[in-house]
Design a protein around this nucleic acid. Structure first.
Lengths: 235, 235
DNA sequence: TCCTACGATTGGTCGGACCAGTCTACGGGA
DNA sequence: TCCCGTAGACTGGTCCGACCAATCGTAGGA
């Protein structure tokens, strides 16, 4: 799928903004200027600017022009582009992402344990059993853990929370689409999964939260390493 | 500021989608059809659709048409429109928002206490002192607490976290722009602020987290009530 | 020196044209 | 009768040019 003309233009402008080549408050070239410099039609340029405005990267005012906004006021959706900016990716940003993801999922666990119905508890226990039995490849484990996180955010019965997690997850998947091969310690995993399982049965929110946190941290270091070495983007 | 033509169209379509008048996977009318039914030009319709696509509410395929996507896969940015959908607002959604906001800010506190420099600790203590001294109106208290949350997310040195919080905050401000009048118990507030202050001095992350949580919950119940009764939207 | 007013610049909307994928329904072949 | 390929209708993508409306900058006047 070849990117559309507006996408190309939007991407170029976006990268310039994210790289700080336009300071906050600074004015972008006019639509007509951008049209001539990019060789595209003004409609296409306009569409690109609308996208950037939707990302809250710029503010467009009739007669005024398009001005760059402060980065931290932008939409969460720019994060994926921030991650795409460097190759290999900015590991600091990846670490920050992992911290927030952990925060959100463990927060969801607290709510989920209290609110989940029996069906959901059962589903979660099945997933945990698959992790515990030790016969999965590391890629499969990651998949199961992802399913588990999905189930948790669903059971938390909090749409806002679910959307935040989905946004974070989509962000990561978009940037690192390949399945990764990591090495987990089967014994440690089985132990943690068992602890989470017990917490679920007893509906012990704090224990479940702690267990899920340990689960998420189990493969974290290697994940960061793998991501950092991943090299070329599959564009 | 009168909304632009594309904004009107986008809003109408968005509301229809959020209200479930289009099921996920269903196809929207063609750009040309929408143009005739709305009385606008196809360019304006197109711009509206681009915005919805950017919100990940729809997926546009060349030759294919625009199809509705599942709501929980959409951008966090649709939440503000979800909140705007009802008046008075959906209190369940407001509660969910408050839960997530609390989660994010308290999570930020943990990081912030460890990473803040002396300057930031000092600034935070000044804000806490203003809360504690009891001579502020409730609106001012809310303002100070917001500054405090801002400072915390800054000190957490986590851009992802900061953007999530800013997104949540912008969402709330956009929906409830009026300053609210709440009643806090000065004594309780002073006590909590003092606890947080001590935690900051001792760099005790857990105590700070707990204190900030209590601070955020102090006015919560009344905030929900006030928001629920707020009535007309200042559109 | 300050302010006003006008003209240039910029975004907003329109209409139409043509290209490039996608979808569908018709008709031919098995 | 059923399946399948294809032609044509349909849909989004891009371009062009025109005009309106808000803003901005500056030259000229008070």
């Amino acid at each position: 799928m070849t990117p559309s003309r507006p996408d190309e233009i939007a991407r170029a402008l976006r990268d310039d903004i994210l790289r700080g080549r336009y300071a906050p408050g600074e004015r972008l070239p006019s639509e007509r200027d951008l049209a001539t410099t990019t060789g595209a039609n003004r409609s296409s340029v306009r569409e690109a600017l609308v996208k950037l405005e939707q990302l809250r990267l710029i503010e467009i005012r009739r007669g005024g022009g398009a001005r760059v906004r402060p980065l931290d006021r932008a939409s969460l959706d720019v994060l994926v582009h921030l991650l795409e900016l460097e190759d290999p990716p900015d590991l600091v940003l990846v670490e920050q992402w992992l911290d927030v993801h952990e925060l959100v999922v463990t927060g969801a666990v607290r709510l989920a344990v209290e609110r989940a119905d029996e069906q959901q508890i059962g589903d979660a226990r099945l997933l945990l059993a698959r992790i515990a039995n030790g016969h999965l490849s590391s890629a499969e484990i990651l998949g199961v853990m992802d399913e588990l996180a999905e189930l948790i955010s669903l059971a938390s019965r909090n749409l806002v929370l679910r959307m935040v997690r989905n946004a974070l997850r989509a962000l990561f998947d978009q940037r690192f689409p390949e399945r990764r091969e990591l090495q987990f310690s089967p014994r440690a995993l089985a132990e943690i999964a068992g602890a989470v399982d017990r917490a679920l049965v007893e509906r012990d929110a704090l224990a479940a939260e702690e267990g899920v946190r340990r689960l998420m941290r189990a493969g974290r270091e290697r994940l960061v390493k793998s991501v950092g070495a991943s090299g070329a983007l599959p564009r």
